[in-house]
Every structure is written in C-alpha cells, then in structure tokens.
Design a binder for these strands. Structure first.
Lengths: 156, 156
DNA sequence: GGTGAAATCTATTTACG
DNA sequence: CGTAAATAGATTTCACC
C-alpha cells in the first residue's frame, strides 16, 4: 500500500505539514501548478496512507497541562503476555502520549502529560502503580521544552 | 494572552485535534450549534494561541525515515553560553524533532529521526560530534513505536 | 453570548488536450 | 499528467436578537 513520492508530492507534504488547513488552490499556486492535479495528488496520498490525517496543534497550557515527563519502564518479565498487558494499558491511558519499545537497560520509554507534578505523582501511583507487569519506573521531568517540531524533515 | 476555554471550546478542540480539515459546519452540526458562533470561537482560539496551527500528519516511512532515537545529552558545563549554543544548534538540525531540558543526571533529552541506523550514526558523528559543548551522548533506539497520540487529553 | 440568510470564496467534478 | 470552466459546497459577513 506504499507509494513513491516524487518531488512535487514532497513539496505538497512540506506545505501541508505546516499549514494543514491551507486552501488547495493556494498550494497549487505556490508550486506553479493548477488545482486539479494538486488535489489529485493529495487525495492519493491520503488514500495510500502517506498522509495519515490532519490535526489542530493545541497549546497544552490552554488545557491546563503544564507538566511533561518521560518515564522509563521495566517489566517484571520479558514475556509477550506482560508486554501486551502493558501496551494495552498504556494505550488506554490518555495521559500517555507516546509509548516506545527501546534498546538498552529499560523496556519502554513513555511520554506523559499532566496538569502539575502532584497530578503526575497521583497518575504514577494510582494508574501505573496498579499494573502488576511493571517492575520499575524512572521518571525524567521536562524542566523546559526547548522546542517540538511538528514537521518531519523533507529533502527534495 | 491566555483564554479560559469553556465546555464548548473544549468540545471544538477535541474534534479539531483529530480532524484538522473538517468543515466548520460539520463541527457546528456535531455540537448542535450554528456555524457563525462555532467559527467565532475557533478564530478566537487561533488568535489567542490556544490553537497554535494545523498540520498534516505524514507517515515517516513514506519519507524514508525509519529510525527514531531518543538521546540523552550532557553538556561540558552548565553555563548559559553552552546551553544557548546547544539549543540553537539543535533547533537548526531538522532531524532533531524535540529537545527538552530534563531533571536528573543528564541535561537534555532529544528525539531524532533518521533514515536508518547508518544515517543516525553519521548524524551523531558528523553533526552532534561537531558541537564542542557536548560532553556525552547516550542513545536509546526505538525498536517499535507502540503508539503515538496526536491528541492531548481533554476532560470536560 | 446567539441566529439565519446573503455574498464570497474554495473544493470538486466534468470535459478535454 | 496537465488545463480550464461549471457546479456543488464551505466560509465569511451582515443585520438582528
């Protein structure tokens, strides 16, 4: 279901990554092409999964979410059963924004967002602490987000 | 410049986070309101920064970006000069998607995306390795991304 | 804060090179 | 793969509650 993106597709993606609600005609205009082929390319990329969707980028502090924490999680056993249990639980917890299996001494790296440190602490104790598959959690609190880019690097 | 979001604003945000290109009329319809107030609320949230922007969610593998790595960086000194130097360099490097100052033994956690492990290695050696402010880098390769949610949790 | 209708702009389709 | 014109649909403004 994949698809080879040519240079024009990549140019369209570079624009849409940054301006998700831009008019198709404006994209076409920027790239010196007309609307119809531009729209056709976009619809094709939406259909074959190159474009997974569109979203508004919301300021976390507007939702009173002021603390981000990265946490390393180790499981008690490296069994498929424990892994599935943890991954399902993590998926269901809205405060966990990202969950990755990583190389090295730990099993998972998860990114968590919370209102404040007290909220984070109660999340760890009441939600993660409930999971019997977890052996240890090591938290790294984000003191300052230098930046977070929403765009992937596109090289033409 | 902040703004108190009421329940309707939050409902709008919940929809726009997941469907960034949805028609305003459709949002209004889902929430049993008419177009004009819905649009007014959205424009207000765009202006006061609650909505920071819109973007297409692009599949990294379509751009031949198949490796994600989290790296802990320690600086040689905890001076403002070294911090500024590192943060500016990280901002300029497109492959670094996120850069956070974290608590604990390390100074920064950065998220890097690369074509493959060879590409990542050359990035570390040729780009990061050039920076005189860095004392050490510890990489955690993402073996599998269990999930990555693009939406912040919204509780009404 | 809200409504509903009119005007304007954008997306989509169709016909064709 | 491209263009251009016509239709259908969305956004925005307006007068008003």
């Amino acid at each position: 279901m994949s698809h080879r993106c040519d240079a024009k597709d990549l140019s369209i993606l570079a624009i849409l990554q940054q301006h998700g609600r831009i008019a198709i005609a404006e994209i076409a205009n920027k790239l010196n092409m007309s609307d119809t082929p531009c729209l056709r390319r976009i619809r094709k990329m939406e259909q074959n999964g190159v474009i997974k969707g569109y979203g508004a980028d919301v300021d976390p502090s507007a939702l009173d979410l002021n603390v981000t924490v990265y946490a390393f999680v180790r499981l008690k056993e490296n069994s498929a059963h424990f892994a599935n249990q943890f991954e399902q639980a993590a998926t269901d917890l809205e405060q966990i924004l990202e969950c990755s299996v990583i190389s090295g001494a730990h099993d998972y790296l998860i990114k968590i967002i919370a209102k404040d440190l007290a909220d984070y602490e109660s999340f760890v104790k009441q939600r993660l602490g409930e999971l019997k598959c977890i052996a240890s959690i090591e938290s790294s609190v984000v003191l300052k987000q230098t930046f977070s880019k929403k765009q992937l690097p596109i090289r033409n």
